[in-house]
Design a protein around this nucleic acid. Structure first.
Lengths: 215, 215, 215, 215
DNA sequence: GATGAATGAGTCTTCATTCAT
DNA sequence: GATGAATGAAGACTCATTCAT
């Protein structure tokens, strides 16, 4: 625990290959068998090395996974920077790029993302707000003339997932946000702005957003 | 609700107490030791009953957790309904209530929520977009005059967490959303509407949102 | 262990019914789920009584099974006696009746017999002399002109099963038989007499045996 | 033989010893405590290795037992072949050898055989035909002048065990044999030929059988 | 007598980790 | 450095048996 980062950092090329093989194997096992079946022995076997070698470069199973996640983040960051290419983008473009980067990343290694994020979650978890979402959809229906989104079901999906995400992120990393009214107010702002149709200028004010996107 | 077909449905009052004790113990273990340390034996010990008793009411560890999550969902649903009280609320109010319900729920059992949602995620996970978020914040700074949110750091937090959440929810339950451009477009719409200041009417069009919120 | 036969012997009719129900349930469970899945709790549930009641009449799981076996033996004995009906049968008839009784008993509750006798045996057991049997069949083929049985494969089956049975019975109940040459000699006598064709009188000497049997 | 696809095939000499120790321990536990008390942990402890090691070479408790049985079968087969030594034996010799092999095998590891074959059988089982056997013996007594065997009690033992064995083997592996009359007829043939004295030539026809046997 | 909730030792099995070779 | 055999604590789950109601 305290001797973290004690191992690792291969300098020779053979070592680098080994590390790479291990990481690739980890991802493969994760995708093929899920998080629960991930074991150091199995990873080593798939990587074609011995467990001993695995422990030469990763001091624990935990570190193995951390490294994998870190690499994925780095990849996303590089993707973002590659797309932005040093330019100063307007906010709309920034956002669109961000969205693209994250969604593409998830799309590319869907299995890995799923294995990584849904790892311990019980199957009930994803559904546990289904009913609330249904409730919300119905409420949207009732006011559909005042709402901007066309696909109300998709809108409800987005709304719920955003609230939950904010709540969970706050719990995980910024608990103080749960106390004040700031997060709350901002979330409401976010969502209401998204949902409610602009009364004055239907399609004039914010035109950039509705353009077609490249898939 | 009661069609859970647990091993047995309690028929004596003793049983009901046992079930309750087990569920309480589960939450306690989850909070104190985290998901990974949750074991049926430990739960039973903390609950002051035997493993056998646990298995009399929950046919597996999995079911135990499902029940816990289900109870939390039900509680949230009831909270929502209590607040709405049968009235037909306008969208703004629906959203505010929804936000309140979810945030309050998380605030109340923060630890449990954390244990449950971060269950399998490695400790690296919460941080893995920190850098991206920093990037985004800087970009926001550069355009701050065109943006509506005051607290740009909070805005970036919200933006990132919303995108990630949408991506993860899609991966978990609606993979088809990752393919088309619909989710992407809607997400961009959501975020840009939130971020960009209304050029025409600075504070006139959407007044309801900026009101004070009841904690 | 030492208070055996302490419970049991119902005198009232309700008790008798209960005992009967339990025994029937035991057989049912045995047939449906096999010996390994047999548990007092399950038997009680299937019998429609409580475990407590089961233990009122059977002091242990062990005793439950013993009783079942004993009943089966009694049934066979009664069947035999019913068929013999007090008459003094000639040996041929005795044997035929005996064979009928045992085979019929097995045929009638084949499942139960199988569950009971194959209970703990690994799947390898029934086959473990297959090769030897094949060897023997081949040897028979080579001498088929000197042998009496028509179906040599069936003959080999019988031969092997008889030897094994004698060996196992001896191990289980009469270990001294394994030491001397008596059992050995008698077994050889039994088998050779069966196998080798009578050189002198092909079909005259022992005519009674080849008659048709009632199925 | 070696295509057993156990978890791993030992590659170092240490492993081979471990495997051997485990198998020896299995036999020892079986002999000392019986099949019901056989557990992987106990075997490992007796073998002086860890459970983990056991599972390195045997993927389940089941496989452990299968291996043991297979080894015993192989040993018997080798014994048979060693005695036959490639020669083409006459039937009488084949049978005698077969009988010797099986009886000797049982004699050598009597305890193991007992534990293995009586594995699940309740203690009632071996006795459950005692009464029938008594009956039969008495019947034999009555016709003793027409019977060939000298030791009628031993004959009855052999007769009963042969019928039961045929019935059980059929139940276990060839249920179709229970239906037709073939098995029945053949069994009767086998037994009557054994029991009934040859009327014509008392001691002339089948002389080979009564010779002395090598123990 | 009957009930069924409770017990807890014991079962099989996994897997992160170590260390002699 | 690499190997892979060995470890053993720990986990999920079962079931014969008891005993308060």
């Amino acid at each position: 625990m305290d001797n973290k980062r004690s191992r690792r950092s291969p300098q020779q090329s053979r070592s680098r290959d080994t590390v790479e093989a291990i990481l690739v194997a980890t991802a493969r096992v994760l995708v093929k068998d899920g998080f629960e079946k991930l074991s150091t022995n199995r990873v080593a076997r798939v990587a074609g090395v011995s467990v001993g070698s695995l422990y030469q470069y990763f001091s624990s199973k935990h570190e193995l996974i951390e490294e994998l996640i870190e690499r994925r983040s780095e990849a996303m960051l590089q993707d973002y920077e590659a797309r932005v290419c040093g330019q100063e983008l307007p906010v709309e473009e920034s956002i669109r790029t961000m969205v693209d980067v994250i969604l593409d990343s998830r799309r590319l290694d869907r299995e890995l993302a799923s294995a990584l994020s849904a790892s311990g979650r019980s199957s009930a978890a994803p559904n546990h707000l289904r009913e609330v979402q249904a409730l919300l959809t119905r409420s949207f229906m009732a006011h559909r003339h005042r709402l901007q989104p066309q696909n109300l079901e998709l809108a409800a999906f987005l709304v719920i997932s955003s609230i939950e995400a904010a709540a969970d992120s706050a719990v995980a990393g910024r608990p103080e946000l749960l106390e004040g009214g700031a997060l709350r107010g901002e979330l409401v702002e976010l969502l209401v702005r998204y949902l409610v149709r602009d009364s004055a200028n239907e399609s004039g004010v914010r035109p950039a957003v509705s353009q077609a996107q490249s898939a």
